[in-house]
Design a protein around this nucleic acid. Sequence first.
DNA 1: CTGAAAGCGCTTACAG
DNA 2: CTGAAAGCGCTTACAG
Lengths: 346, 346
Amino acid sequence: MPMTIKDIAQRSGYAVGTVSRVLNGHPDVSDAARERILAVVAETGFRPNDTARHLKQRGSREVAIIVKGAGNLLFARILEEAQRLLKADHRPAAVYYLDENDDEVEQALRVCRELKPLGFLFLGGNRDNFKRSFEHVTLPSVLVATRADTLGFPNLSSVSTDDVEGASQAVGCLLDAGHRQVGIIGGESCVAAPVMGCNTSQLRLMGCQQACTQRGVPFDPQRQSAIARYSMEGGYEATVTLLEQFPGLTAIFAMSDVMAIGAIRALHDRGIRVPQDVSVVGYDGIEQAGYCVPRLATVCQDWEQLARRGVEILLRQVEGGAAVHEIVPFRLSLGESVGRPKENTH
Amino acid sequence: MPMTIKDIAQRSGYAVGTVSRVLNGHPDVSDAARERILAVVAETGFRPNDTARHLKQRGSREVAIIVKGAGNLLFARILEEAQRLLKADHRPAAVYYLDENDDEVEQALRVCRELKPLGFLFLGGNRDNFKRSFEHVTLPSVLVATRADTLGFPNLSSVSTDDVEGASQAVGCLLDAGHRQVGIIGGESCVAAPVMGCNTSQLRLMGCQQACTQRGVPFDPQRQSAIARYSMEGGYEATVTLLEQFPGLTAIFAMSDVMAIGAIRALHDRGIRVPQDVSVVGYDGIEQAGYCVPRLATVCQDWEQLARRGVEILLRQVEGGAAVHEIVPFRLSLGESVGRPKENTH
DNA sequence: CTGAAAGCGCTTACAG
DNA sequence: CTGAAAGCGCTTACAG
């Protein structure tokens, strides 16, 4: 039912090839033809069918950005900045938002066939998905905010924050404030990992243990940590669990800010004040952390640099450069949710 | 570079037509052919090119859902429920996430050409975009969470909350608690609209005025309201402005929960306690409202019903039904952010 | 049940 | 500068 390039050819009196050429800004077209055809296009409101275009084209000049988790505020920030940088470089970008649980590599494979982009920028990603099928995506790619060095794909770079060190400093600041009973809430494998691997949660757990070890403070993951889904509700529930299984806690490290927000609410609902009774530290540095009451202490990932290095590394790889794995610095923000522990009441 | 159906044909020894048929679950294929072809598909990891498929197909059986604002938490909820309902009805759905400022109708036009869906579910939308180009989308459509009755398109239904009444009750609950100096923060046209039209912000402003009029309380939009972008930061800044231009205020109605969260933080930063010194009411009922400290009083939009009626109305329209415009009830949640005004200090 | 062929809307050498 | 033609990866009548 919609117009096609054929209709435009007919109405303008030119051949479809010529119409295609003016639509694509090809130079070898007479002004007369260009004018006439553009006029017809304007008056009919014709829009070319992009998918047909891509079907024929050898490959596009676009960078594909795949965002894992449409509601992830950290990724939203990184995305915005990456788009700005690409635009400034006159690089078109195509953004694909995925749900938390969608398979980003499957999506990349689809985009490979259909858009044939220059390369991929993955904002977040699941190791299992990459292991399972990334070998089939042969285009230059960069995984942002998650480590990919141990994956070992020759066309996959990564730029991320040092999760071990970030978590270590987060917990460290609690210990240094005098806390000895620190509870942890975090992702699936933060408690008893079958293999101590390199999932983000596992790395952050290692950071916790490192901070404790360095200061000679004992830490028992089984007792002192609880699993939370990546949501406020998840943080709330995990905190309730944690309070039961580890009642002496005076501080909580949440592996993401959204979980931390749920944790604060759970504490508040039990009459436990933050930070007077229990301190809380989050992770990510999303905008919302700065609007909480109390303002959330958190490990701020440097979204600006994650975006910039992600784009730079990708473009270098497109020019033939090899994959690299970069770590960008983070910043610990103390906020208002950390205090000293109350006098020991034992 | 990726495999095509032709490669599969070659390797399996069958013609492309037969391959296509087994890929699409067509019944008229021998078991032998099906088995052999599926085996080749499995071992090669072949995936058909969806866009080529759609190019040829007459039209798909999918419902297209266009989400305006990838980070909008209310829409995220509605989306989840709509997907669940469609799945239960064995209706495939294709979701398109857009940025806040992208043109959702342009996107629908693109999808019209490329996917040829059964119909559209718009989660949020801008009146101007619809006015400009919706006439070209001739497929059954439902606009969810925004009114479309005054737009007058014969194929565009809507299901939304009564914005006038919602805002009226929000402000009403402040007035009934004894507040007389109520400030408003909200969208672009919430202050001095050139034409008092039917933008969401304008409708909510009308609700405020109605609540005041009913109770004989004077209300001066020029002085008592400030414009805010749809974000926490926007709410924060508008609150700062409002405090200067209307220093006597004892309560604030924010036209969205995210703005309200920014408002609470702005108040807190000035040593103004919520709700002891100033009360705050939001709008939307996003999950986050229930995790704030204090829990946010807000107008809860019924996402479950918005989703359900949206889907039902769309499917009815696909069967040939006429467009309808429905209002679903909301619920005022008092939270913890509303109190009585302090004794008058004048 | 299967193959050969036309065609979806576009682009792009190839002639002229 | 422009047209006619081939072809991108798939589907679908049409024969057999």
